[in-house]
Computed example of a mutant assay.
Amino acid sequence: MKVLPYMEISFILEKLILIIIVFAVTMFFALYSTLAERKVAGFIQDRYGPNRAGIFGILQPLADGAKLFSKEEFMPDTPNKVLFTIGPAMAMIVSLLGSAVIPWANKFVIAGVEYIPQVADINIALLYVVAVMSTAIYGIVIGAWASNNKYSLMGGIRAGAQMVSYEVAMGLSLIALVMMTGTFSLREITEQQAGFGWNAFYQPLTLFIFLICSFAECNRTPFDLAECESELVNGHHTEFSSMKMGFYMFSEYVSMFFSSALISILFFGGYNYPGMEWVADNWGGNIANTLAVLTLLGKISFFIFFYMWVRWTIPRFRYDQLMRLGWKMLFPLALFNILLVGVLILIFK
């Protein structure tokens, strides 16, 4: 029997603890995003949101979770019972995978030992992110197909076509970003934006394309045609109940959390904040890095609010409008953006 060296055991334990922390933070944000969604909707529509469960409705997500757990579990008359179960599980698992490559701060030093607050610091993190985001659709399509329901199937087909349409423009926008940064590492991209050297200032068109595509990737309004109530009842999750439906709902909010983190890292400096070096020199690196984590969480919270604001402000597109936007507008615009970035690099570098 092979005995692992002490350093390997310590490394494994460090990563396991970090995975648990990142998972807990992600689920906390997803859980309370459901409350924030209804509070924002209430504010925009000039009405109260949930305010009965706890002070200001703070216990409402826990009540919703208890309700989902206690609801009756039923399954439609479908020959694909295994796929019916796998669909929501896959949607939830895939939405959680992206958080593995998020850099939360620089190195913490505790008792003379350095700890990097990032589960996996890989040099092809951006490729990993694209791969994970492109597989998120499988949970929706599998669940829709296995539901044996024409409305669910239509929602799954819409989701698949939408994903393909907007993945192309999103991938091309990331190519333009990589051309300027010269790296696929999210940590290196973050470090290049120290201070106010945000990529959003240098590539606003790339940000515009990526931001629109992220709404489609997360199935958020105005691109939530996969679950359009007025046409498809509830779309791909019409036949799902209890925690199966809960998994689909939470996977959307987890995806929104990850997309917000990715936008913050790629275009708005990630964990960087003004005066970070001064704080590190005068107050210590650990305090500076703690503030860095809070800074990134603050940026994530802002973009989660932005997703919600757009949802309750802009009406849903028709499906032909959604396809036209993806293929006839964003796709050519993304190609032009690559050409523009290439020309600017040749001129100024």
Rank of each mutant, 00 (worst) to 15 (best):
Y273E: 01
W198F: 08
Y271L: 05
S264K: 07
A261R: 05
F257W: 09
Q203R: 12
F258G: 00
T206D: 09
T238N: 09
E252N: 11
S214L: 15
E227I: 02
A261N: 12
G275W: 08
P222E: 07
S251A: 14
F258I: 04
E217R: 08
F196L: 15
S214Q: 13
E227T: 01
P204M: 02
H236G: 00
E252W: 00
P222M: 09
G235C: 01
G270A: 05
V254W: 03
T221D: 02
T206I: 12
F215M: 04
T238P: 01
F215I: 01
E252A: 12
C213N: 06
D224N: 06
A194W: 13
E231R: 01
A200L: 13
F240N: 12
V233I: 14
F240C: 07
H236T: 03
I212R: 09
I209H: 02
A226I: 01
V254S: 00
C228Q: 13
E252H: 13
N199Q: 14
I209V: 12
G275Q: 05
L205D: 01
F257H: 05
E229T: 07
L205I: 15
G197D: 12
P274F: 08
S242Q: 13
F250N: 10
I209R: 09
F250D: 02
E229Q: 10
Y253E: 08
P222S: 06
L225T: 08
G275N: 06
Y253L: 13
C213Q: 03
E239F: 01
F258K: 00
G235E: 03
Q203S: 04
E229M: 06
F247Q: 11
G195M: 09
H237K: 13
A226W: 09
L205A: 13
F210V: 02
G195L: 10
G270I: 02
L266S: 04
M256Q: 08
M276S: 10
M256R: 07
L211G: 14
E252V: 12
A216Q: 02
I209W: 04
P222Y: 09
S255N: 14
G275I: 05
F268G: 07
T206P: 02
S264I: 07
S241M: 10
F201E: 10
F201W: 14
E217I: 06
T238M: 07
N234M: 12
G269Q: 06
E239G: 11
S214E: 11
F268V: 11
F250P: 00
F267T: 09
G235H: 04
H237L: 00
G235I: 07
S264C: 01
V233F: 06
P204D: 03
Y248G: 05
V254P: 08
I212V: 12
F196G: 06
Y273I: 04
F196V: 15
D281Y: 03
N234Q: 13
F196Q: 08
E252R: 14
N199Y: 15
W278Y: 11
Y248D: 07
E229V: 04
Y248E: 10
